[in-house]
Design a protein around this nucleic acid. Structure first.
Length: 480
RNA sequence: GGCUCCUUCGUCUAGUGGUCCAGGACGUCUGGUUCUCAUCCAGAAAAUCGCGGGUUCGACUCCCGCAGGAGUCACCA
């Protein structure tokens, strides 16, 4: 397989959201699969939209997802620098080639004049093409004057690895700006130069660039460059409406999901499979499996709607997968920031015990916060939970009290305090009191947790310990 | 508006002329697993394959129209 040199080229204008991180995932997968490399390039030529700290945010996001890059900021590489703002000279050199060959011209036309031309066309209801208004007197190119491409209207055909064979007529070709008056290149020019300089083999980007592709093709041609493989990625659609997902639709940043307790494995798995599948019925993919099975041909042509419920489901699957395959000791370190406040002073081994009996109930790691508090602090007693419980409401308060006292006696005499012994005692108690599990176990469960749900009773009690269990049962018995 | 792309269960998708009265997954609903919640398991409902024409013995699959949706028409990327 040919080594694929791919790139992820975001502009540092804010956080990375799920709508655009996929254009990092697919290039990564292709690069790894072909033993090629992934370049991270920061497209910061729009100084007005530049956001302080955005580059770090991008780096953090990629690192969290495990999408390491081979060239780019931090790691550097043979094509340094990887910030477009620092590559001015390179763009100007290439621009001068175009000027020399007569394929670019300095355009002194003031913006107001251009707006006027555009308005004329609108009124005449004809498409506005700047090449019909080329200035007659072209000055020498110098700072402060934008540089335009001088296009040659004609037909273009090309192959898009996802969309198939494409073609476009001269009506889409125009004299696009190559270098802005501030001296920075436009995306349209900079990405072509950089991709060529950096040896990029696959240009993977959102479909929104599809309609400007003929203009890029014209530039490749004028520059005598071999065109790279073009890969248009379908949009991810917002969960409401049909628009592509964007910050305006409340697209959350990837790091926000991290802070909500989504695992990077689940995020990667979900996003990779939104708009791509390998034709099998597999749903859970590790990063290595994705690398192994990824293929451009199987990328979907239509947009896919972002559905958070499936991401949440996948996350639950991943929590269990990590626990089952790597053990609780590997799941535990990921839970650091998700425990309730009251857990702060508890030792790791206690929290590990809690995690190992609660993990299969977690959808996100942050569920720990509201699902485990009774392991770390005495619950607030809410007698309504007892007296209004559908299995317990038929008992009088004194009956409940008696049951609790019998339980306390039984558990006080339980020999070793482990899940099996506790379960045996509970089973004996069931017989002795002639109650149904729903009644007796329900009562005990509520009395020690006052939570809407908990893990299996004997496991919960084992972790809580005899002392705490008995203390809570006593407190409740006295409160009734 | 011009140009371009897209169109299978609510959602993500399988499907490359017969094996599809369309398969899987999420979600929903029902039942099971000694209490709860979840997991897990079993099952159910859910798509006249955007619409209309063709081609063919036969079309979700090929062709042509149409409609709807989206993208793009910046000195933004």
């Amino acid at each position: 397989m040919e080594k694929a040199i791919t790139r992820f080229a975001p502009s540092p204008t804010g956080y990375i959201h799920i709508g655009n991180v996929r254009s990092a995932i697919y290039p990564y997968l292709l690069a790894r699969q072909s033993n090629g490399s992934l370049i991270l390039r920061i497209e910061d030529t729009d100084r007005a939209r530049y956001v302080e700290g955005a580059t770090e945010l991008i780096e953090n996001t990629l690192e969290w997802l495990g999408l390491n890059w081979d060239e780019g900021p931090i790691v550097e590489g043979p094509h340094s620098p990887y910030f477009q703002s620092e590559r001015q000279k390179i763009y100007h050199d290439w621009a001068n080639k175009l000027i020399k060959s007569g394929r670019a011209y300095a355009d002194p036309t003031p913006p107001e004049k251009i707006a006027e031309y555009r308005e004329q066309c609108n009124q005449a209801k004809i498409p506005f093409l700047y090449r019909n208004f080329r200035p007659t007197d072209v000055p020498e190119w110098q700072p402060g004057i934008p540089l335009r491409f001088k296009t040659e209207p004609k037909n273009y055909s090309w192959h898009d690895e996802v969309m198939g064979d494409m073609h476009a007529g001269p009506e889409v070709l125009d004299d696009i700006i190559l270098i802005k008056k501030d001296g920075y290149p436009t995306y349209n020019f900079a990405h072509i130069v950089d991709d060529a300089e950096m040896g990029v083999t696959h240009v993977m980007r959102g479909v929104e660039y599809l309609s400007s592709t003929p203009n890029y093709l014209a530039i490749y041609e004028a520059l005598g460059l071999k065109r790279p493989k073009l890969v248009s990625l379908p949009h991810i659609l917002a969960s409401q409406g049909n628009k592509k997902l964007g910050k305006r639709d409340g697209a959350k940043s990837v790091t926000e999901y991290r802070d909500d307790g989504i695992l990077p494995e689940a995020m990667l798995n979900y996003l990779a499979c939104l708009g791509w599948n390998d034709g099998t019925e597999q749903e859970i993919y590790t990063k290595d499996e994705l690398i192994q099975n990824f293929s451009l041909e199987r990328i979907q042509t239509s947009g896919a709607r972002y559905d958070e419920t499936k991401l949440i489901w996948l996350n639950g699957q991943w929590i269990r997968k990590i626990f089952d395959e790597q053990g609780v000791e590997n799941l535990y370190p990921r839970t650091q920031n998700f425990w309730p406040q009251s857990a702060e002073n508890y030792p790791d081994d206690y929290k590990i015990k809690v995690l190992s009996i609660i993990y299969d109930r977690l959808k996100t790691l942050s569920d720990l916060r509201n699902m485990t508090s009774y392991f770390f602090e005495d619950p607030t007693i809410d007698l309504d939970l007892l007296t209004k419980n559908k299995f317990l409401k038929k008992f009088s308060e004194s009956e409940l009290e008696t049951l609790l006292k019998q339980t306390i006696t039984k558990l006080t005499n339980t020999k070793a305090w482990d899940a099996d012994n506790v379960q045996n005692s509970l089973n004996e108690l069931l017989v002795e009191t002639d109650k149904k599990p729903a009644e007796l176990f329900g009562l005990i469960r509520i009395a020690i947790s006052f939570a809407p749900f908990s893990p299996a009773l004997n496991l919960t009690m084992e972790v809580l310990g005899r002392e705490t269990t008995l203390a809570r049962l006593n407190t409740v018995a006295r409160s009734i």
